[in-house]
């Protein structure tokens, strides 16, 4: 095969172009610290990295939702515990003041205490968390329990649950229907507000004997109200556990996904530098060879 100067020049320019292109690729990897700088660098890897990032965005949302759910459950727990303490206090008062030999003054004094407890229970039943009424069901924008001048408390809320989305379409639903906590007399539950109202009425009754009967009638409902609240608190425990466990699982998955994205996307800088070095050597030797081979021709040796 004949070899001409043009062929040699073309070969060298072609080789130099390929080498500089390869160097640019490695330089980009080192500069961006990424192995995939555009989808065509590795379409499958880029797809995996993208889906990893989508998964990560989803996981972060779930994690923050679970965080919110946990704090909501804690708020529920604290509120119900406080109400439970108040109810117990009311029951004890009822037991003490229904005994014989309690004066009308003592009962009147106790009545104001119980009235305050009733006020506080009402206030707690209308508690708000993150701007929403906690025990109003789906009706989160208005106080669910309203008391008229006769001391009767009515529920203005709705049925409804507080929903915490979990991965894979699951959910934790926290009962937000205040009736199930404090009323629901119809379904075998106790109307806590009525019990407190009746207790105040009994304590305020000027006919002490009649008052005693009234007060005694309230003790048993108050006990059941306490149990009702405890049961609702117990309902939350497995939900809290589920949120906790899912949250921990998500954290581990998140770390794994992040690592996978890194494996797909991140450049092995050490390797890139070594390759760049190799390319530099190749490039420089090509230049050196070109300067030695391209320059001389027969012309130099004639004369």
């Amino acid at each position: 095969m004949r070899i001409t100067q043009t062929m040699m020049a073309r070969m060298f320019t072609g080789a130099l172009r390929r080498q500089t292109q390869a160097m640019i690729v490695q330089q980009e990897r080192i500069a961006t610290q990424k192995r995939i700088n555009r989808p065509s660098d590795d379409p499958a890897g880029a797809g995996r990295a993208l889906s990893g990032r989508a998964a990560l965005a989803g996981l972060e949302k779930y994690a923050s939702g679970i965080q919110q759910g946990k704090s909501r459950l804690e708020f529920n727990e604290e509120t119900l515990k406080l109400i439970g303490d108040l109810v117990r206090q009311a029951r004890r008062t009822a037991e003490e003041k229904s005994a014989g030999g309690v004066s009308a003054e003592e009962r009147a004094l106790a009545a104001t205490t119980i009235q305050e407890i009733a006020d506080q229970v009402l206030q707690l039943a209308n508690a708000r968390w993150n701007g929403d009424y906690v025990f109003g069901g789906d009706r989160k924008d208005a106080a669910p329990f309203v008391r008229d001048e006769d001391g009767n408390v009515t529920y203005r809320g709705e049925r409804g649950e507080f929903l915490i989305p979990l991965p894979g379409g699951g959910r934790v639903a926290v009962d937000a229907d205040g009736r199930n906590y404090f009323q629901n007399a119809g379904a075998g539950g106790v109307n806590l507000f009525d019990a407190l109202r009746d207790l105040v009425a009994g304590l305020e009754n000027p006919d002490l004997a009649e008052g005693t009967v009234q007060i005694r009638a309230v003790i048993e409902p108050l006990e059941r109200a306490e149990v009702q609240l405890r049961n609702k608190r117990a309902e939350v425990a497995p939900q809290a556990y589920r949120l906790q466990a899912t949250g921990e699982h998500l954290a581990r998955v998140r770390a794994a996904v992040q690592a996978a994205i890194g494996r797909d996307e991140d450049a092995d800088v050490a390797q890139a530098i070594v390759e760049l070095k190799n390319l530099e050597v190749a490039y420089e030797s090509t230049l050196a060879a070109a300067s030695r081979i391209l320059q001389p021709s027969l012309v130099d040796f004639l004369r």
Binding site: R53, A57, G58, K61, G65, N130, G131, L163
Partner: peptide, 23 residues
């Protein structure tokens, strides 16, 4: 500013809305 990021943001915003529909 990708399509995928826009989709993630879209569904993420409904996630937030599910947690607080009154917000």
């Amino acid at each position: 500013w990708g399509l995928q990021a826009a989709l993630s943001d879209f569904f993420g915003s409904w996630h937030d809305l599910a947690l607080k529909p009154t917000g």
